[in-house]
Each structure stands twice: as structure tokens, then as C-alpha cells.
């Protein structure tokens, strides 16, 4: 009889499909008025000798039913959860929601790279005005009035004595006026020349550098600039210093690197020379020291300057300088 009960339960369990069915089964078998509970109540009317065995059997069936129900409930729960999770699934291949990062302007990207290298070599960063006195832009840099060297830089004039600075070099004079050696700084910034074509814009960026102390040599100038250029363009880059002219340096040098596009064999960019002009440099002309009151017999120093646009054009293979100032986001987005 109790065996039949178990079989009946198993049949009914087999056809149960929902949590409600299982609950009903639990009530029907194990509830207060359930079949198993009723069977247990019949124990008292059983003979004393049958009672232990019968009790044991009924208890076994009870535990069996409980276990079966628990297990079915658990598996049903996990199936339900699985179904629900499946229903909640999303198309994980759709794009994420974000605001695309903006891009730093390529000129500033290159400029900061240059500044960073010099800062690591112990140079501080200084600034000067962009609208500048003729005195700082020319006179104190040893460009006297009516000197042909002024033709090297087509100048925007605000008045007879005030110009848009044509180079970052006036910062040299301003800084030396402010302090005594040792001096070691770079001065990045915008400069202006009245010129506009495929290789010239009326505004462009330069980084100036100055180092003055006792016993600073031309050899040191080469040391610092080689260290910089090798970091900027790669350790094996060939470097060439050749004589040039700037009124505020003497000796003056133009610094070339081996063409990074053709590797020195000659191409359109390096005009078949295998070399690219990258920097102007030299030992500070004692005439400049005299303007700022440095003792020319005690101190020596070097200065250098470079155009950022040119370096950026080489670095990114850009062939028209005007692209930098059109600010087309299809261009700017590439850096």
C-alpha cells in the first residue's frame, strides 16, 4: 500500500511542469491533510509489532518524496532562471555608448614631445610676449636697424617699435635680463612672419632653447642637440652640423638629420640631398651678452631654435603646411 503511494507520487511528479504543480504535490502528500501525513496517522491503529517497520517505511517514503520535490523544485527554478536570462540577452555586438575622445592638435602633440625631452634634460619652460618690442625681437639680438639680416624674417609691424615676434629668440633676452647664469630653459610659442604659401603660414610655432654657464662649449651644444635628436627621431639618426649665420649666435650652425623618408639616398622631400634641415643653433654671440650685462669673458652659452610645423610635417608625412590651420576634423582626427 505504501509502495503504491510512492508509485502514484512518481507518476504525478512526472506530469508536474510548474512550480505551482510541485507546490500542489507537496500539499497533497506532505501537507497537514496530505496522503503521507494521513498514512502516519494510521500508525496508531497498526499492531505494535508491525508499527516499527511500517513507521520506518512511511518515513522513508516521506523523505523520498521530500527529496524528489526539493530536487525537482531546484531544477525547475534553475530552468526558469535560465529561460529568463536567455530572454534578457542583448546584442553584445552593438557598439558601446560613448563620446569619442577628442584629439590633441598635431602641432601641440609634437611640441609637447619636444618640451618633454628637454624638461627631462633639466631645462625649465619659459614664455614671452607674442607682440614684442623691436628691441627684444631684433636690436638686442644683434640685428641693428637697417641690417640686411632683418630681411631673413618678413615682419608684421604694429608700430615702428612694436612687431609680432618673428621668432622665439626674444625670450632669451628677456630671461637673461631677469636672472644671472646658470640659465637653462626652453621657450615654446607662436611666431609670425608675413608670408603665406604651401610651405609658409603667417603664424607658426617654434621652440627656443638657451643654456648659459661657465665653460659651456660648442661641443656641449652638439651633445645636447644630438641627445635630443636621437630621442626625437631614433637613436641611429645621422646628424650633421654645418656653419650658418644668425646675428645672435657666433659660431652659428644649421643642424640637419639624415632624411627620414629616403634614409639618405635622396628624395623629393630632402631635395635629393639626403639631409633635412631641422634646427638653427650656435654659441650665444657676445654682443647679446653685452645687451643683458653678462660678462663675456666669464660666461658662454648656446642657443637653438626649431620650427614645430616642419618637424610635424616630416613626422606625419604631411605635404601642405596649411592643413594645420584649416582645422578640418577629418584631418585632426588622424593624430
Amino acid at each position: 500500500m505504501i509502495e503504491d503511494l510512492k508509485q502514484t507520487f512518481l507518476n504525478e511528479l512526472g506530469s508536474a511542469t510548474s512550480a505551482a504543480d510541485l507546490f500542489q504535490l507537496r500539499v497533497n502528500y506532505l501537507g497537514k491533510k496530505g496522503t503521507v501525513t494521513a498514512a502516519l496517522k494510521t500508525l496508531s491503529s497498526a499492531s505494535p509489532e508491525d508499527r516499527p517497520l511500517l513507521g520506518k517505511k512511511i518515513n522513508e517514503v516521506k523523505q523520498f518524496i521530500e527529496a524528489e520535490l526539493d530536487s525537482r523544485e531546484a531544477s525547475l527554478k534553475s530552468e526558469t532562471l535560465k529561460k529568463q536570462l536567455l530572454a534578457d540577452s542583448i546584442d553584445i555586438t552593438l557598439p558601446g555608448k560613448y563620446t569619442a575622445f577628442g584629439r590633441e592638435h598635431p602641432i601641440n602633440k609634437v611640441l609637447l614631445e619636444i618640451v618633454d625631452i628637454f624638461v627631462r634634460m633639466g631645462f625649465s619652460v619659459e614664455q614671452g610676449p607674442e607682440v614684442e618690442q623691436d628691441y627684444y625681437n631684433f636690436e638686442a639680438l644683434n640685428f641693428p636697424k637697417e641690417h640686411p639680416a632683418r630681411d631673413m624674417q618678413d615682419t608684421f609691424f604694429v608700430s615702428d617699435d612694436i612687431v609680432l615676434r618673428t621668432h622665439t629668440s626674444p625670450v632669451q633676452v628677456r630671461e637673461m635680463e631677469k636672472r644671472k647664469p646658470p640659465v637653462r630653459f626652453i621657450a615654446p610659442g607662436k611666431v609670425y612672419r608675413c608670408d603665406a604659401d604651401i610651405t609658409h603660414t603667417p603664424m607658426f610655432n617654434q621652440v627656443e632653447g638657451l643654456m648659459v654657464d661657465k665653460n659651456i662649449t660648442f661641443s656641449n651644444l652638439k651633445g645636447i642637440l644630438e641627445a635630443f635628436l636621437h630621442r626625437m627621431f631614433g637613436p641611429g639618426t645621422p646628424i650633421r652640423f654645418r656653419p650658418s649665420f644668425f646675428p645672435f649666435t657666433e659660431p652659428s650652425a644649421e643642424v640637419d638629420i639624415g632624411c627620414i623618408l629616403c634614409g639618405g639616398s635622396g628624395c623629393r622631400v630632402c631635395k635629393e640631398s639626403g639631409w633635412l634641415e631641422i634646427l638653427g643653433a650656435g654659441m650665444v654671440n657676445p654682443a647679446v651678452f653685452e645687451f643683458v650685462g653678462y660678462d663675456t669673458e666669464v660666461y658662454s652659452g648656446f642657443a637653438f631654435g626649431m620650427g614645430i610645423e616642419r618637424i610635424a610635417m616630416l613626422k606625419y608625412s604631411i605635404d601642405d603646411i596649411r592643413l594645420f590651420y584649416e582645422n578640418d576634423i577629418r584631418f585632426l582626427g588622424q593624430f
Partner: peptide
């Protein structure tokens, strides 16, 4: 400069300056 020019800029060795201690500027 004249002496350096004829001697050859390319023959002048590249030597880093002695480090300056302290904070510049």
C-alpha cells in the same frame, strides 16, 4: 667661428655638459 668652420664642425665632438645641480630658473 672661422677656425671652427675650416677645422670642420663635423670633427668637433658631441659632449653633454656637466650636470647643473639645483632647480633651474
Amino acid at each position: 667661428e672661422e677656425i671652427a668652420r675650416v677645422y670642420g664642425y663635423e670633427r668637433i665632438p658631441a659632449v653633454l655638459p656637466a650636470a647643473v645641480t639645483g632647480i633651474e630658473g
